[in-house]
């Protein structure tokens, strides 16, 4: 991507989407299911970061924590409190799943902000799998925990009787739209930010605009740092909200 911009100085060349191409790390063959690709590399780096923060960082087990340990404790407390506040005491046993999602998204987002990086969470395939996992898990959990009473989620008992069927229809539609919005929100945010940065970078080829372009990239980068964390937070908190609906389907 970057090499091409250097090669063609004559005209503006935009390849904002090239950074999202999935390509094999070794060789040039087709991308099969088990091919080791840049996806593998950046997900592995995300795992390393999680291990580094949550396992190596807390190796001291000190009462007075080191810097990394206090960051790990902060992350733990942040998600634990979120799960407890939203889903209640009985939701706490799903805390490890939610923590897994949060840490993966946070590290994937921030690793994606490194120059030349590949952003795994900008792919709808990745976010859709996570969102569908949440959706299916929550729906199955709802039926297992509450039986048919789970359908009470769609029957708004506080509304007038005449309105209830209409509301139920709307509730059902919104329920099934959840995984779509849940996944596209994260992937869209990550993709858009990275593509915009790339477009600004393309303008940097023109000497007159390049200072402005660099400023714009800097500003967008700052915004993306915020977005990276906020989107991970939003994904996690929505997961908690959906989980709450499954555990307590009464409005």
């Amino acid at each position: 991507m970057a090499t091409e911009a250097g090669g063609e100085e004559s005209g503006l060349v935009f390849h904002p989407m090239d950074q999202f191409i999935v390509s094999p790390l070794f060789g040039d063959g087709p991308v099969g299911m088990f091919t080791i690709t840049n996806v593998t590399l950046w997900m592995a780096l995300a795992i390393l970061c999680v291990v580094g923060l949550m396992v190596l960082g807390t190796g001291g087990r000190s009462i007075v924590p080191s810097r990394i340990q206090s960051v790990a404790e902060l992350a733990y407390g942040f998600i634990y409190k979120m799960v407890e506040d939203i889903t209640g005491k009985d939701g706490v046993k799903y805390f490890p799943y939610i923590m897994t999602l949060f840490l993966f998204i946070v590290f994937a987002n921030f690793l994606g902000l490194l120059p030349m990086a590949f952003t795994t969470t900008s792919h709808i395939a990745v976010t859709a799998v996570m969102a569908l996992a949440v959706f299916l898990g929550v729906t199955i959990l709802g039926f297992v925990k509450n039986g048919a009473a789970f359908l009470g989620l769609f029957w708004v008992s506080s509304a007038p009787l005449a309105l209830r069927p209409i509301l139920a229809l709307i509730e059902v539609i919104s329920y099934f739209v959840r995984p779509v919005s849940h996944s596209i929100r994260l992937a869209g945010n990550m993709m858009a930010g990275h593509a915009v940065i790339k477009v600004f970078a393309g303008f940097a080829a023109i000497a007159a605009i390049s200072p402005l372009s660099v400023l714009a990239i800097t500003a967008m980068y700052g915004l993306e740092v915020l977005v990276s964390f906020i989107q991970a937070y939003v994904f996690t908190i929505l997961t908690c909200v959906y989980l709450k609906d499954a555990l307590h389907p009464h409005h």
């Binding site: 999935v22 088990f34 690709t37 996806v39 997900m43 795994t120 792919h123 395939a125 799998v129």
Partner: peptide, 9 residues
């Protein structure tokens, strides 16, 4: 590429 991404995810 979906299969690959989903598998590694």
């Amino acid at each position: 590429t979906f299969g690959n991404q989903i598998f590694w995810l």
